[in-house]
Nucleic acid binder design. Structure first.
Lengths: 197, 197, 197, 197
DNA sequence: AATGAATGAGAGTTCATTCAT
DNA sequence: GATGAATGAACTCTCATTCAT
């Protein structure tokens, strides 16, 4: 794996893209190098020109996804000092960016959120980051003070994860719509207001 | 696979239990027949005395789990005519039974909810059942009428799924506690009441 | 690698014998499992029924050879109290047993003395054992006191090793003849007696 | 492989040196072209600019070593007409030159004496040359007339070979010391003189 | 009811070598 | 004079499954 020119870079990219598809479709263990290289239009040894092993290629994909997602989640923090309507819009915007990131990388999302042992760790990490945001936002007075932020964060992640899987990735809903729905559910709860009184 | 006497039944059960553990631990593809029979204390051909194939054994486990879960979710329907406090308790009780079922079958739950291609179908089915309950309960006047029951059901399932994975199965929380937390989040939402006004 | 009946034991032996031939002929790295199993008349996976890996099979052969040789060399120690003629016969007998062991296991000898990284270690070990014998024999007054036993042992091993390779294994000489030649060379040196004076 | 200028010559030399090290360390089959070119700081195809194949490069090294060694052994012939002390010194000097040649080319020696199928042929050749010398020396009256020169030559080579491997190449002994030890062993044999009578 | 023995099919990986530039 | 890129051919090892007993 020495210096690469432009052709090598291209081959590497083709392999990476092929690997993404194959891993997303079949998961790590069922994914076959032979399928990957077939998709990429090269022979098997070419794969090892650019990646140390099946594991290494997978790790590279996972890492890219993880880093991107971490960035997006970090950036989704909402600052203090907003009024109620602005808060709502900000939350929708933040969730929208997360859904957008996932929607724009459907295969990677499949790998990173659903197809690997690492996905468990990644989701734990993301839940942690989300909780940090939520804590700050709670202190900003946006959320109930009796709210357990750990569970809140896990619940938020859970919903994002599931709606992504069944609505976003198949293309049934847009990121914005999902963001609005998620925000609505969390903001107002489910109780009928008349019944509530 | 002819009719079996009592000894055969025992071996079959031991194999089934061993398979449950192995599948839960490693997933379908990584599970090895050799590990299963080692756990069960029999030889490899014995496995094929009781099961047609790896797939068949897996399907049998999945089916048992699925049927049990469907039953529990069906039974978790809440009748009309309750006042607010009774509703709350009824919801907690219903969720509690679901969490209890999952918590009592940890290995099967791992297989049925997280370890297989079937889990996607199972969860879709469960979400559907949950939605039916929710629709009836919404019509009973318990929930907001503008609530989209599809998303509500998916969100509910998502949270149950995730809290089960990270809190229930590792033994960090009891089913009752999780039921209460889930109910609280959904009933009241997250907004600070002072901020709310 | 579970319990084996008589058929299994036979297959194992056939594989072991085939492996011996193949390793002797080609050395560890050039030896192919496919050749071994072909010789043994089984399929490739059968090899792994009886051996953990190529390495493990090789190690088993090496170990057997090494242990046998160590035994023979240990037993070749000559007790004190012999007169000159008896000593000579005893030495010839001892060397004869070593040559005989090597000659009776030609393939193993090839592996253990010439075909592996282990052969270096084995020979070092054998040289050490030989030296222990020589030290005792030197103290019994059989050999010159100014003789460096380390070098003597190494030289003895060297000659045995080489004569085995070029005379014994190809069948050009018998163990007894080689034993006598080796003894003669060492006992009397090379100098012409007339010239010696 | 056309004619080369000065730059090409340099690369070729670097490759040859790198190949020597690699072959000495790992033997022919385990040596990798990729390692050789890495050591030499060139790319893989460059190797084939200067050598037809792995085999060809190896053969070139072997040939160099073989020719050098043949020369040294030829030159180590001792003329007739020496008295006993001069003979001793001449033998020590001759052996010293052989050990010196081997010690000065440690990597090549590893390849030529221990690491190849060719080493068998080379040693046979060397033994032959040594025997020719010994025959002449025997006829000069230096050695016993009942001495079998074939075995004597093989034994001599065996000892040189082994002491080189375990004492010279690791740097534990100098060529001169080894020459003296070798000569001593052969000249006087091992018997205790008192016991001898 | 169970087992010892065996296998077909296929996986990931390695390496000497070559071609176009 | 040298290189980036690629490959054919091989090899070790794994696993679900079956057959004869």
């Amino acid at each position: 794996m020495r210096k690469q020119g432009v052709i090598g870079k291209e081959s590497r990219l083709r392999l990476l893209e092929a690997a993404t598809q194959e891993f997303a479709l079949n998961g790590f263990y069922q994914a076959k190098i032979s399928s990957i290289v077939a998709r990429a239009g090269v022979t098997q040894p070419a794969f090892y020109l650019y990646f140390e092993s099946k594991e290494a290629a997978f790790a590279e994909l996972i890492d890219g996804f993880r880093n991107g997602l971490i960035q997006v989640v970090r950036d989704s923090h909402i600052e203090a000092g907003k009024n109620r309507d602005d808060l709502k819009e900000a939350v929708v915007e933040s969730l929208g960016q997360i859904y957008r990131y996932l929607g724009e990388n459907p295969a990677l999302t499949r790998i990173g959120l659903y197809q690997s042992a690492e996905s468990v760790r990644i989701k734990a990490e993301i839940a942690g980051l989300m909780e940090q945001n939520l804590i700050a936002e709670q202190q900003a007075g946006y959320y109930r003070h009796d709210l357990d932020t750990v569970f809140f964060a896990e619940a938020l992640l859970a919903i994002v994860e599931r709606l992504t899987l069944i609505k976003l990735l198949p293309g049934h809903e847009t990121p914005s719509k999902l963001a609005r729905i998620t925000q609505d559910l969390f903001f107002y709860g489910i109780l009928d207001t008349k019944h509530r009184e």
